[in-house]
């Protein structure tokens, strides 16, 4: 563990908590893409199956459970509890165009052709594009509540911090994972436009 990865995990946890609070407090999921949230739940489910097979640390196991619970909790809030506030009309990104290529790519490019490893690779590829429906929805509605933009800023920062973690691990532990690094860079680049808007003029209330 290093400070970049710890800050990244905290930023990730913060993003998920901000989202849950936003939906719970405002009792509305307006402006939030349910499709992205479904993709995140798929990402964590596919990636954290190793919860039952390999124990890394208490921190690792607890955080995996928190991310899984939070992502399914968000889906429950969006599609069941506050279903009426879900904005179907603006959440239209075709997620099958994201899932299928990631499935194919994970079968073609992976570290090992084993079920758990293919699922891990699929989750890495899918996570890199999982935010697209949300960014698409924000661009379509032309604005985002301030709380939603803070959520996106924290979520985008988490993988940017992970890039610093990978640089650190390369030099300090000569450990690197090309698949995670390339996907992480793609994921962070997708936020660049949003980061620019968030930092220059706070995209909410436009």
């Amino acid at each position: 563990m290093n400070v970049f990865r710890l800050l990244g995990d905290i930023s990730h946890l913060l993003a998920i908590i901000i989202l849950l609070l936003k939906i719970w407090k405002t009792r509305s999921c307006a402006g939030i893409s349910g499709r992205s949230q479904v993709l995140f739940a798929v990402v964590y489910t596919a990636r954290y199956l190793d919860l039952f097979t390999s124990y890394i640390s208490a921190y690792n196991s607890i955080m995996k459970l928190v991310f899984l619970a939070a992502s399914y909790g968000t889906i429950y809030l969006m599609f069941i509890k506050f279903k009426a506030s879900y904005d179907h009309n603006h959440d239209t990104f075709r997620i099958e165009f994201l899932i299928l290529p990631c499935v194919l790519l994970s079968l073609l490019i992976n570290h090992e052709f084993s079920p758990l490893e293919i699922l891990w690779t699929f989750s890495i590829y899918l996570e890199s594009v999982a935010i697209l429906p949300q960014l698409f929805m924000v661009s379509k509605t032309g604005e985002a509540e301030s709380i939603t933009s803070h959520y996106l800023f924290a979520l985008g920062s988490y993988r940017a911090l992970y890039i610093l973690n990978w640089i650190y691990r390369y030099y300090a532990e000569s450990h690197y994972d090309v698949i995670a690094i390339v996907a992480g860079i793609v994921q962070t680049v997708l936020y660049c436009d949003f980061f620019y808007l968030y930092i220059t003029k706070g995209i909410y209330g436009q």
């Binding site: 995990d9 570290h111 090992e112 490893e117 450990h175 995670a180």
Partner: peptide, 10 residues
Amino acid sequence: KSTPSSHDEL
């Protein structure tokens, strides 16, 4: 090089 068992990141 990361191997299946060594995915120690979230």
